[in-house]
Amino acid sequence: MKITFEGQSHQIDANTLINVLLHYQNIVNEASKELSGGSKNIELKINALEKGSFVIDVSLIESAIKHLFSSESVAYIASLYAIVDGTHRLYKHFKGRPVRTEEDKETAKTIIGNTEFNITIRVYNQPPVREAVSKSIETANADVNVEGFSVDCGTNEPTEFKRESFKEYIYDDFDTEKAILNETDEVVDAVLTIIALNFEPGSRWQFMYNGFKIQMTVKDDALMRKIDEGERFGKGDAIHVKMKIMKRYNPTYKAYENKSYKIVEFLEHIEVPRQKELF
């Protein structure tokens, strides 16, 4: 594997090299933990350089000497190379954002292009791994002698980052990610009893749900269409819906709390029995 610093000068700051290698080692270590389940130790070795070269030649070897030249060891290192390569490719495409949606995953598989794509996505999604790539680019950006930075794992074309694009690849949204990770949602089949309603589009209604009062902004198209068509909804009526409950983790109670509600699908209007007129 090779790390290349592009520039017109034959020098770079020592801290640039040291920091980038430390971040690179963190990526390799996290990839190895995920690939082996923590059963293998990998050493990062820097091979001898030619004078004035900006190409850093890196080798990975298994720490256990008895396995050094085994077919198992060779296959393991090859898989590790592919994962580290794929991690950098994903970072360049997603610019540090995690792979979350199914669409993201399908895109990621195309980018990675190897059989280790599931492990590679898991490795890439770890904040310390993406932070290590981001810090490497940030370090290169701080050195005026570096005009480009690339990683070549020998499995594909090198993954390159150019100085003019350095800033857009420095990702610092990990705090927001942490907040998102502390949130979850659940879609439930629910019957909501109406206790207060407002027919203005986007207005807030109040309901009874499982013995608790809840309120939400009603935006469901099917429900609003019923209202526009003249269907009468009144206090005490119920609606059968698919409802999304947004929850946030409370570290004090070590449990998720319901924070907000949203109707995602209107299914049925259940009218309360009306008192019949006597005359």
Rank of each mutant, 00 (worst) to 15 (best):
A82F: 00
Y124E: 02
K109F: 03
A108G: 02
F94W: 06
V129G: 12
T110A: 11
I119M: 03
G86L: 08
N118A: 06
Q126S: 15
H93S: 01
V99P: 02
K92G: 00
I119G: 02
E102I: 07
E102A: 07
F94Y: 10
K109S: 14
D104H: 14
R89N: 10
T115L: 08
E116M: 14
Q126M: 12
N125T: 09
Q126T: 07
F94S: 09
I119E: 02
E131W: 10
G96D: 03
T101D: 07
V123P: 09
D104F: 04
K92P: 01
Y91Q: 04
E102Y: 13
V123D: 04
T120W: 00
E131P: 01
H93F: 07
A132S: 15
F94Q: 05
F94D: 01
E116C: 08
I112F: 05
T110I: 06
E102H: 09
R89W: 01
R130P: 07
F117Y: 15
T120E: 00
R97Y: 03
E106I: 06
G96M: 04
V123Q: 08
Y124N: 01
K109N: 11
I83R: 09
K105L: 02
F117C: 04
K109Y: 04
R130D: 06
I119K: 15
E106V: 14
F94N: 03
I119N: 07
L90N: 11
T87N: 09
P127S: 11
V84L: 02
Y91W: 10
H88P: 00
E131C: 11
V84E: 03
G86P: 05
V99R: 05
D104K: 02
A108N: 07
T101H: 05
E103L: 12
A108E: 03
K95V: 00
I111K: 12
F94C: 04
A132M: 13
F117D: 08
